[in-house]
Design a protein around this nucleic acid. Structure first.
Lengths: 246, 246
DNA sequence: CAATCTATTTGATATAGATCAAGATTCATG
DNA sequence: CATGAATCTTGATCTATATCAAATAGATTG
């Protein structure tokens, strides 16, 4: 028992420097000293089981969460109960940036599969980033990247047709899996058709029909949640080439 | 001539502490000393005439821009030329946060009326915010607020009906004018029906028809770009009460 | 201030995607 | 591994909003 506790503490101490995601969540070129300071900051490594909320809208904001493994959806709920999925997050991505604004989480984060996350107390991160310019700048870039990403979703929702939206969605997933060393051509969707639909501003039936159509057209293979991209160029061509004749 | 230059330099020196927008773009409770440091940083106050771009997507990112007066739209253009308006900005708001992500502006900012802006070199702002925790936190809140705002637009685009979108848009404008000491009940729209439509994911004809409908229903008066809100509660009721029977 | 250009309104019609419905498949649980 | 609950697929139909079109109003310019 005692040895287990020791092992865990050793493990905790070294997570950042040995983490395969460090180039995603940490600034490059951090000195060993700085790395150590940062590791002291990540005070908790937790798991979050499928179906559990990592945080909910309205609860006090304390920490950011770096995803070590697993998959999440974030969503907002409007007064009348409408749910809008605002994003899907995977390993190496940071969640919770929206909470800084009002010291309260403004959206909900739900694990779509068993996940491991690193909790980063934000006050401490701010403090440390005052001493580490590269960390400071990295944080700013992460927040800015989130803004840019959201603008992309606005473009998708505001001016793309259903086909284009789903194609763009698949291409985005493919690209993110690839960046993490997984196959860009075949992957399991972690979310339901309804969740995809919510994200893309479509109904689940429309999403399902489009998957079938893409399959018929030889662009992809679909077998329930398992996707195989057969014609990347074809998907790319679909996005952008089919503007409505405004 | 010489006296003019002196006057301008005096004016420049005191802009922040005397600016009526300081509670919008600066952290509260900044000491006079800190305020002075901040003022040294805002090295340029510029004007931007109606129809001019403040910045364009693709140009190197150097500075944030605080709007002192005027009105802007920001928009992204997709490869095939589709344009999506991502937001409208007015006095006291900060633009350009999206540029931090890739050291390049990712959207275009166009003045919809003659405007005055304060240019804030971002590298210097980062530097100063290392010494001023309240400034640092303020910057983080601004970025986070932008993310939250974008999530709101995603909700609007992804799950609201046309009527609700336009009502939400008018309510948002009204609230922002009020926060700046202007009438929340009557204002001039600075943007065209087409720009509103782009922002809301609707065609300009739909926007026009909805304005007419709101007028007939006694919710607003419209006379071209001049809007009078007659029934705030009615508009509020429209948003959220009309979910599609999903 | 006439001329021209741009923005807006309104009507008629078309259509992409929603809705409704019924099976079929997959998944979770005792 | 059987059984009920989710989830997904597919078809038929409906509707909100787009599209097309034309007239009007407002803004800009020489």
């Amino acid at each position: 028992m005692a040895s287990q506790a020791v092992l865990r503490s050793i493990h905790l101490k070294s997570i950042c420097s040995s983490c395969s995601l460090r180039e995603l969540c940490l600034p490059i070129g951090l000195s060993p000293r700085d790395m150590e300071a940062l590791e002291g900051l990540v005070h908790q490594r937790r798991t979050c089981r499928r179906g559990e909320h990592l945080y909910r809208a309205g609860v006090p904001f304390q920490s950011l969460f770096a995803i070590r493994s697993g998959f999440f959806k974030t969503y907002v709920i409007y007064e009348d109960g409408r749910e809008q999925v605002t994003g899907f997050s995977m390993m190496g991505e940071m969640m919770g940036l929206d909470g800084i604004s009002a010291d309260t989480h403004s959206c909900n984060a739900l694990a779509l599969e068993d996940s491991e996350i690193c909790e980063v107390p934000f006050a401490k991160l701010e403090e440390l980033s005052r001493d580490l310019p590269s960390l400071q700048h990295h944080l700013h870039k992460m927040m800015s990247r989130e803004i840019v990403r959201d603008h992309g979703v606005m473009l998708l929702l505001g001016s793309m047709r259903a086909e284009e939206r789903l194609a763009a969605f698949l291409l985005n997933l493919s690209q993110r899996f690839q960046a993490r060393g997984y196959s860009p051509d075949s992957f399991h969707l972690r979310m339901t058709r309804e969740e995809i639909g919510s994200y893309l501003g479509l109904k689940l039936e429309t999403v399902s029909r489009l998957f079938s159509k893409f399959h018929e057209d030889g662009l992809i293979n679909v077998q329930n949640k398992y996707i195989e991209i057969k014609d990347l160029a074809g998907l790319r061509h679909l996005v952008g080439e089919q503007a409505r004749p405004t």
